[in-house]
């Protein structure tokens, strides 16, 4: 199985929805559709070049775009957090997010839905490869494998313990 297929399989097994798209334009369409379906009114978006078309698309839909540099309190009101993903790890179905200016952790953490845009050529086979490649470390490099979960109460898995209930990855062909 190639990396991309393995990533899709493994991410799916931990409850991540992976939507494979051919182009960034298509990713924009799917992001807008998703927000429409979910009746999203406020979105927290990372400040990144690849986010610009999504931001424009959502604005056209009348979605309020929250300033990613805004406070936690503000970003906590978003119904969706849209971020990039620096890497994907095939073995575990993990996405890897580096935080930085305009790219706060809050966006992948506070809203109930996390949408990440990952380029297929950024998928590495495993953790060991990732750690070799990931270079100088940002203040926070976070590996995300599925939605927030807890099985503390009654051994029953519950999603969205503190973070998002759902994670969707828009996988853009390399």
């Amino acid at each position: 199985m190639n990396r991309e297929a393995l990533f899709i399989e493994r991410a799916g097994q931990v409850g991540v929805t992976v939507i494979a798209v051919g182009t960034l334009d298509e990713a924009v369409e799917r992001a807008v559709e998703l927000c429409r379906e979910r009746r999203v009114q406020r979105a927290a978006l990372w400040d990144a070049p690849e986010m610009a078309p999504i931001r424009a698309g959502l604005r056209a839909e009348g979605v309020e775009i929250l300033d990613p540099r805004g406070s936690f309190e503000t970003l906590a009101h978003a119904e969706i957090g849209i971020t990039g993903a620096d890497w994907g790890v095939a073995e575990t179905g993990t996405i890897v997010l580096a935080s930085g200016p305009g790219q706060p952790q809050a966006a992948s953490l506070l809203p109930p839905l996390h949408l990440a845009v990952l380029r297929a050529d950024r998928i590495v086979p495993d953790l060991a490869t990732l750690l070799e490649l990931c270079g100088p470390l940002p203040s926070a490099l976070v590996f995300i494998t599925g939605p927030s979960r807890s099985a503390d109460i009654g051994l029953v898995p519950v999603l969205g313990a503190h973070g998002p209930t759902a994670v969707t990855v828009l996988l853009v062909a390399g």
Binding site: V14, G93, G100, G102, L137, P138, V142, G146
Partner: peptide
């Protein structure tokens, strides 16, 4: 029994210039 825990945070230093969390 998970292949990976849901969140693994690699925290390197405190909040940096221009960042709004950490």
């Amino acid at each position: 029994g998970q292949r990976s825990s849901v969140y693994v945070s690699l925290l390197t230093g405190r909040r940096r210039v221009g960042e709004t969390d950490g």
